[in-house]
Design a protein around this nucleic acid. Structure first.
Lengths: 141, 141
DNA sequence: TTCAAAATTGCAAGTATATTGCAGTTTTAA
DNA sequence: TTAAAACTGCAATATACTTGCAATTTTGAA
């Protein structure tokens, strides 16, 4: 995707979520659109370099994005959350994440979905499900 | 289960995992056997009261138990891991965990399993999978 | 364009979970 | 009984994340 397209898309997303088009929010959303894989606060700040917003701002923006449903917490990597765009997910489940026990890397399995869970106990209302897979990646196997 | 049975079982588990039957390890394992639901470091220390081992010890014991496969990290509750006995799990998956978005509580779904994931990308080796479900519990629905 | 309310930000300080170094103690097995 | 190995407590440390508050930016209406 071209840089101007990403910029445009970021602003559209912000507006449709009723968020202001501020420098920080645009930068962070553009970055997530650009790399299209989960990023942590740390990765966002480092890849944005000198122009990065303060870490408190990054957290607040990520939280805001989560509340609006633009992104969500994908998985935990050594005690830190990785955030990713929510636009690949259905209402009821996101793609599974695969963590390699060899190298520790995590991959998004964009082409695999499991059937939804059945036989929920009485009174429980299903909303969405998330699958994590452990194993060895192609480098480590 | 009777108290003496729990105590006996704890020691058996420790021995079969090649761990020593120390005061701390017995106490923590007995507690997990007794409540048979996931506990955090905090809950373990609080429910053990004055006789509880130091928090560093609790963490180290939990880590040791994880490495030996006696327990595993079940889920994260407000930034703290909950640990549970692994004896209800198969090699390839543990029971799903259900988190209520109303009250925030998490429940173990001991009677639900999903089929294992298929169509893993080339070279990826499946080891195990874990399912998390979100929704409303019977109190909140 | 102007301007005030609302939203957002930076900085610094604070919180909470978890980890580590090290000296001392307990457990185990020979 | 005893020495090696395993384990523990204490205090210090690491790190992810949160919060208070004053200052700045954004927005929409005049």
């Amino acid at each position: 995707m071209k840089k101007s397209d990403i910029s445009h898309k970021a602003k559209d997303l912000l507006r449709s979520a009723n968020l202001n088009c501020t420098r920080s929010q645009i930068l962070i959303l553009e970055k997530l659109l650009q790399v299209s894989r989960p990023l942590s606060r740390d990765e966002i700040i480092k890849t944005l370099g000198k122009s990065s917003p303060d870490q408190a701002t990054v957290y607040r923006v990520l939280k805001r994005f989560c509340e609006k449903g633009i992104i969500h917490k994908a998985y935990l990597q050594s005690r830190a959350w990785k955030y990713e765009l929510a636009h690949n997910c259905t209402e009821t489940q996101c793609h599974p994440h695969f963590t390699c026990t060899g190298c520790g890397k995590t991959f998004c399995l964009k082409n695999s979905f499991l059937p939804l869970i059945k036989n929920l106990e009485k009174g429980f209302v299903f909303h969405r499900q998330q699958v994590r897979v452990e194993g060895l990646c192609s480098m480590c196997s």
